[in-house]
């Protein structure tokens, strides 16, 4: 992706939850709601409130809204963070941290996208094998042979 004009750079998912192939249903945890415990679901989830425990949405997507605060390990197909997360993010497809996102924890996903300006402290595992993983679109001067994860550059 290096060397491309910004207009060609891949834009992150918008603030909508990425549509799940298994379900179009979407649940929302409102900003005044706080939940403690283990959350398991089979529909997409938007979190504007506070959630503490674990979150497992194996086939579905999670959006942590700007006001959302999750203190938990999260596993989902796609995870988009606009708010705050303290805990591990395990994305079966992709993890996206948007400019407003604040994440402290480790990320494991075939594709990881960070927007410049996000706050992130932790590790990104670059060796999660996936059939969806494509070589990082880069300069051509980047001949790393071990393509496993793809990260998407998003400069704002």
């Amino acid at each position: 992706m290096f060397g491309k004009p910004e207009s060609e750079m891949q834009e992150p998912q918008t603030s909508k939850v990425p549509a799940s192939s298994s379900s179009r249903e979407q649940a929302t945890i409102g900003s005044s709601i706080a939940i403690k415990g283990d959350l398991i679901g089979e529909e997409d989830l938007v979190v504007h409130g506070r959630l503490e425990g674990t979150v497992t949405l194996k086939q579905n997507s999670l959006l942590v809204g700007k006001d959302g605060h999750i203190k938990a390990d999260v596993r989902a197909r796609v995870i988009v963070v606009e708010g705050r997360v303290e805990g591990g993010l395990f994305g079966d497809e992709q993890v996206i941290i948007k400019k407003s996102g604040v994440v402290q924890g480790n990320i494991e996903a075939p594709r990881v996208a960070l927007e410049d300006g996000c706050k992130f402290k932790g590790s990104i595992e670059m060796s999660v094998a996936s059939s969806n993983a494509k070589p990082a679109a880069a300069t051509g001067t980047n001949p790393g042979s071990g393509h496993k994860a793809e990260a998407v550059a998003i400069r704002k």
Partner: peptide, 18 residues
């Protein structure tokens, strides 16, 4: 955490701590 750096390291088998 810079998008380009993460993308660049993603071409290599590694764990990146930021």
């Amino acid at each position: 955490p810079l998008a380009n750096n993460v993308e660049f390291f993603s071409s290599y088998p590694c764990r990146l701590y930021i």
